[in-house]
């Protein structure tokens, strides 16, 4: 037993993979928010953050440009298709320049910071704040980007904004061999990381209406079918999709 604990310690320090101990997934909806299917809402999709690469034997992320390009194209296509199926209209974010682009950049970073806060301090066991735990018990989800989202390019033509983050690191051959050999010795080594977050924002008030975080996604976004499966998982509990979507 002591030997296994010591080994976990050594491997944990040395292998640079920063994954949570348990693969987790969680969704939250703002209290009182409802989005019925086929309500014809216009959803502005901001440029998804997509990074696909491989994971080296030691756990480092190795970016791969081809895979990232393929994944981005597939994800954007399947997102479009999914929302249309739900009866909503998808508007792609228009190109922004100059001050508008700076404003958009800041808001995307802001959303990223807020979703990191939600994940660290409300969603997953580890560093949850007492007030956020209380919110969880009362089904309260109260986060906002602030009303300045109304000035973002394209915000005047849409009701809601959708942010997508996707990061894949496929285990390299060395990593898989390491995993196999470690398993022979009774030690668990994770090969590959597949993380995805998605958030829906009200473009008038900036409130986050829905947020989904998943640290162990399925589907291979480098292929169209895989991207579809990925998007289906990510938008699993998207408001209005409860009834028939798989």
């Amino acid at each position: 037993m002591k030997r296994v604990v010591l080994l976990f310690a050594i491997l944990g320090i040395v292998l640079n993979s920063a994954q949570p101990v348990v693969a987790q997934e969680r969704t939250a909806v703002k209290q009182g928010f409802e989005l019925k299917a086929n309500s014809g809402k216009r959803i502005l999709v901001f440029r998804p953050t997509v990074r696909v690469g491989s994971q080296s034997t030691g756990g480092l992320f190795e970016p791969n440009a081809d895979w990232t390009d393929q994944a981005r194209a597939n994800i954007e296509a399947s997102l479009d298709e999914m929302q249309t199926r739900l009866g909503n209209e998808v508007i792609e974010a228009p190109d922004a320049f100059g001050e508008e682009a700076q404003n958009l950049q800041e808001h995307m970073e802001l959303f990223s910071a807020i979703s990191r806060s939600v994940i660290n301090y409300q969603f997953f066991v580890g560093q949850r704040l007492p007030t956020k735990k209380r919110d969880n018990r009362n089904d309260v989800f109260d986060w906002s980007l602030g009303p300045s989202v109304a000035d973002l390019p394209g915000a005047d033509q849409a009701d809601y904004g959708l942010f997508i983050f996707n990061k894949d690191a496929y285990g390299s051959t060395g990593r898989k061999i390491l995993q196999g050999l470690a398993l022979l010795g009774g030690i668990g080594v994770q090969s590959g990381e597949h993380q995805g977050f998605a958030g829906l924002v009200d473009l008038k008030t900036g409130d986050i209406l829905w947020l989904n975080a998943d640290f162990a996604m399925g589907g291979d976004p480098r292929k169209p079918e895989g991207a579809e499966k990925r998007m289906r998982q990510l938008l699993e509990e998207f408001p209005g999709s409860a009834a028939d979507e798989e």
């Binding site: 030997r3 491997l11 292998l15 034997t57 030691g58 480092l60 390491l178 050999l181 010795g185 030690i187």
Partner: peptide
């Protein structure tokens, strides 16, 4: 620098596994 870190961490991973087993 990236390649050096990758090689170094690979060696560390294998060495740790060996030590653990």
């Amino acid at each position: 620098r990236f390649k050096a870190r990758r090689s170094g961490s690979d060696v560390q991973a294998w060495a740790s596994l060996l030590a653990g087993l």
